[in-house]
């Protein structure tokens, strides 16, 4: 199992703050592919332009990274602070 957290508009449009999914092995890109395969709605909202970064165990990753069972993954939409 892994935990996935959503932030900003993603959390609201998906109506989901966090979820647990079955996960044996794979990387961050494969996780996105899986989530997008859920429906056209998921594919549209998790498009590349709607995802700024992914964090694994509270560390932002800058390239495709392996995800292991027990990890906490956060999906971050484009940021708008300051």
């Amino acid at each position: 199992m892994i935990k996935i957290c959503y932030f900003g508009f993603l959390k609201e449009i998906l109506n989901l703050e966090e979820e647990q999914i079955e996960w044996s092995e794979g990387d961050s890109q494969e996780l996105l592919t899986f989530l997008r395969s859920r429906s056209a709605f998921w594919a549209e909202n998790l498009s590349d332009q709607n995802i700024f970064r992914i964090a694994i165990n509270k560390k932002i990753i800058y390239q495709t990274t392996s995800i292991s069972p027990g990890d906490e993954v956060a999906i971050l939409p484009p940021v708008t602070g300051g």
């Binding site: 932030f7 900003g8 508009f9 700024f52 940021v79 708008t80 602070g81 300051g82």
Partner: peptide
């Protein structure tokens, strides 16, 4: 800060609407 730090802003308008 504006382009890298994870902050997300939502606007709530006087007319009752809101948007990220």
């Amino acid at each position: 800060l504006k382009t890298e730090a994870p902050f997300w802003k939502k606007e709530f308008f006087q007319n009752g609407t809101s948007r990220w």
